[in-house]
Design a protein around this nucleic acid. Sequence first.
RNA 1: UCCUGAGUAGCUCAGUUGGUUAGAGCAUCUGACUGUUAAUCAGAGGGUCGUAGGUUCAAGUCCUACCUCAGGAGCCA
Length: 448
Amino acid sequence: MRQDIYIEDLKQHVGKEVTLRGWLYTKRSSGKIQFLDLRDGTGICQCVVMKNQVDEATFGAYDKLTQESAFAATGTVQEAAKAPGGFELFTKSIEIISVAHEYPISPKEHGVEFLMEHRHLWLRSSRQHAIQKIRHEVVHAIRNFFDERGFNMLDAPILTPNAAEGTSTLFELEYFDEGKAYLTQSGQLYGEAGAMALGKVYVFGPTFRAEKSKTRRHLTEFWMVEPEVAFMDLAGDMELAEEFIEYIVQRVLKNRRKELDTLERDITKLENIKAPFPKLHYDEAAEILKNYWSEMNPDEKKERFASGHKEFIYGDDFGAPDEAVISGKFDKPVMVHHYPSAVKAFYMKRDPNEPDKALAMDMLAPEGYGEIIGGSQREDNYDLLLERIKSHDLPVEAFEWYLDLRKYGSVPHAGFGLGVERTVAWICGIEHVRETIPFPRTISRIWP
RNA sequence: UCCUGAGUAGCUCAGUUGGUUAGAGCAUCUGACUGUUAAUCAGAGGGUCGUAGGUUCAAGUCCUACCUCAGGAGCCA
């Protein structure tokens, strides 16, 4: 009996006759024996065609099938140590479904611009396929983590009337007779409203930043997951964050080993990602930077300045190169907490014991992947929050609903935001976040 | 916005102190090959050197402006 099956299930069909359907990845031939690598989305299978075993039409299919042509192959599944994946199809017949035009992405290397221009096709390549499988696993792990802990998912609006942290980086649009609307930068404020209704919530969705950032860590459209929990303080926030990251990384290790192998990821670095993570007070992190600069000789200093790294001054926020110095000291993600409140967002609560510091934390990924989490305990006092909105020159009317949360049963609460693309880039060990999202939006790309 | 780098065949690149007809690999096409792994081997076709000016007997190469892309800074996840 023949049946249609997927390549990932081949091992259950050894010795049986099956039909595989998919696309031609590559082909090789030595005259009277042909090898066609069939890709079906679940894997790649080598189809072996021998001239003296098949009819003329099937043997002739090799010449007609161009790269990425669609076809069905029927034959017997065999174990084959030399075949990619360990199995091959000893092919009896081939049915051509559609012949592809000359395919632009050849097996040799290509430049970034060319690949991005063909992103819709590039996704078929094995590395891109592996990255999307891992992204899916990460998203699944995120949802499982919160669902298992009794969190309620809360969908925040994409179209919003106001900014979370200033107005310079918003995508703006006309909203009927209501004036301007903006694409959301963060669902956090809505998450806070949700936490007061449901106790524990997480917002999960796309966010938009019109910043003109052109680095391997930035996209204008990216996905963020933002848990928010009533009655949780900063310490609880950090515990939740480290448990969360451990969960995601270990899940990918368990379920996506094959894809990590495809990406040639150093697994040992990921196996090490287990809570607790190092936690540094801002002052301790500042000390690391102070020592870093004081131990440097003048030539090295000149080099650092030339690369754009400015010498750290106590009280400043950390720049990307500073973060690299701090995270470089550890082989796990590092959490830095108690940043100066002057450099942090208006909604972050100040520490009553250190009034110049915010109850805020960032998590820096290892291996130079930068900030993957930013979080804080939120200001829960109505008067202080109102004062903060005013001192940040934000329009009070726009935040009236948000201030209501402090009017009607205000409680301590905290949360954080995790950037999905930076997390996936780190786990995959790839250079740039643009490869972690199917259709990246950057400052100079809105196509395809 | 600022700093740095790059635009040469469909793709990835080489091209010397300026010098005659601009090269290679892959892809495409033709042929050979019964166990290939980015198969191999032999052959063929394929170019307004990013755009516009300028210097020169002579410009892919030098100069100016502009365009596009990439990496980084700032800001952030």
